[in-house]
């Protein structure tokens, strides 16, 4: 790291920008009264983003695929969640499956 001042400036810009992105939603919503339909659409938008986050985080790493252990772990967790298993079990089973597969040499 050869230029601490530049790094600090970059961090401050990222911090301010990230805060602006986070507060933009609540600020916009306080200006307008929204119909139930639009509110429903906004909730759905958040669910769509979270689902896409799940898909990309489970299946991809950078610009390529994430191997086998991670998607299988997420799948095991997903099936348990679908079968209404306790949340703790879902999380631990997903992690243990991926870790176990890697221990066996599965990428």
């Amino acid at each position: 790291m050869d230029n601490p001042a530049l790094v600090l400036a970059a961090i401050l810009v990222l911090a301010a920008g990230t805060f602006a992105l986070r507060v933009a939603g609540p600020l916009m919503r306080s200006r307008f009264e929204l119909s139930d339909r639009v509110q429903q659409l906004l909730s759905t938008a958040a669910v769509v983003l979270l689902a896409a986050l799940v898909a990309t985080a489970a299946l991809t790493a950078g610009h390529t695929h994430a191997g086998i252990a991670r998607p299988v772990g997420v799948l095991v967790g997903g099936v348990l969640a679908w079968r209404r298993a306790p949340f703790v079990l879902v999380v631990v089973a997903a992690a243990a499956t991926a870790a176990g597969l890697r221990l066996l040499g599965v990428p």
């Binding site: 669910v47 679908w82 992690a95 991926a98």
Partner: peptide, 22 residues
């Protein structure tokens, strides 16, 4: 943290949380 499977735990957490909405 991949050795502990945490990379699989996080998508699973979010999946479990959005599943009711789906």
């Amino acid at each position: 943290t991949d050795a502990f499977g945490l990379d699989a735990a996080f998508p699973a957490v979010l999946l479990a949380l959005v599943l009711p909405s789906l």
